[in-house]
Design a protein around this nucleic acid. Structure first.
Length: 272
DNA sequence: CCGGCCACCTGCGGGC
DNA sequence: TGCCCGCAGGTGGCCG
């Protein structure tokens, strides 16, 4: 489910409830996520730990404590909410992190593609995070950077910008949206892009992600913010899942096509 | 090293 | 109603 804006929204939503809180205990109802949840380790490390920071790297949420860091990924269908511990868990609520103040951080993930791992004191060295490219909203992700790497790649540009070695956080929704805004066809071979096009694409990636964060992310089916509300960016999508509808620029029909096993949406007239 | 493909899992909507 | 199929926001790992 979640791309960077949804993860950012979740992180911002849970942060005020977690900051400075002390963990009481952890309950793992189903440890079968993408990798087995290390229940024994978590039960040893977490009780009594004080949460000092909640941050995000790529689509991972990092919950830092004085004992080490939890790395949480929401996969395709995950969500996190902060509730009172009296609220009963439902079918896919796999993990509870109980706080001393009576609140519970509840991890839900129907498809179980997500992850809940323990990273010790150097989380950025963790194999999941160590090889990641730059954050899209940082200045180091710019047109020149994109152009330099794109020149070495023969893949379709859509797959290229979704590769987290290149830049993190651009998933299937926002890849289609940014390419549309940049007037670049998703199947253009990366090394045919000009510096001008890379500048433009970089700009539209930042623009789309920023606007989506502002709207609280995109809710297609089951994404919910930490307070249970949906994200409102869906109303602003221009091409994603709009096949057959008129392009908002030129009026011709939006097409859909599978690129690298993912459905992709674009305007054949506006995107070259 | 790079690119392409698969797998992991559940729920939902559409067609019959 | 109910069953079956295809599809879904991600990404590590394997193969050639």
């Amino acid at each position: 489910m979640p791309e960077l804006p949804e993860v950012e929204t979740t992180k911002n939503g849970i942060m005020p409830h977690l900051a400075e809180q002390t963990i009481d205990s952890i309950v793992v109802r189903n440890a079968k996520l993408r990798w087995p949840v290390p229940s024994r380790m978590l039960k040893k490390q977490l009780p009594g730990a004080k949460i000092t920071d909640v941050s995000r790297r790529a689509k991972y949420i990092l919950i830092t404590t004085n004992q080490g860091t939890l790395i949480v990924h929401l996969g395709m269908s995950g969500s996190i909410r902060v509730l009172d511990k009296s609220v009963k868990p439902e079918k896919h609520d796999h993990i509870d992190l109980l706080l001393k103040n009576g609140a519970v951080l509840r991890y839900r993930d129907p498809r179980r593609f997500g992850a809940f791992v323990w990273a010790g004191n150097t989380p950025l060295q963790h194999p999941l995070l160590a090889e990641l490219g730059p954050e899209p909203l940082q200045a180091s992700f710019n047109g020149k950077y994109l152009y330099t790497l794109a020149q070495k790649s023969k893949r379709a540009i859509k797959l290229f910008i979704m590769d987290h070695h290149i830049v993190v956080g651009v998933g299937n929704i926002y890849a289609s949206e940014s390419l549309f805004l940049a007037h670049i066809h998703p199947k253009r071979i990366s090394n045919t892009l000009t510096l001008t096009e890379c500048n433009q694409l970089c700009k539209t990636i930042k623009q789309v992600l920023k606007q989506a964060i502002k709207s609280g992310g995109t809710t297609l089916q089951d994404f919910q913010q930490a307070d249970g509300k949906p994200g409102y960016f869906k109303q602003k999508l221009l091409v994603y899942k709009k096949q057959g509808e008129p392009c908002s620029y030129c009026g011709s029909q939006i097409k859909s096509e599978i690129i690298g096993q993912r459905n992709s949406f674009y305007c054949t007239r506006c995107q070259k």
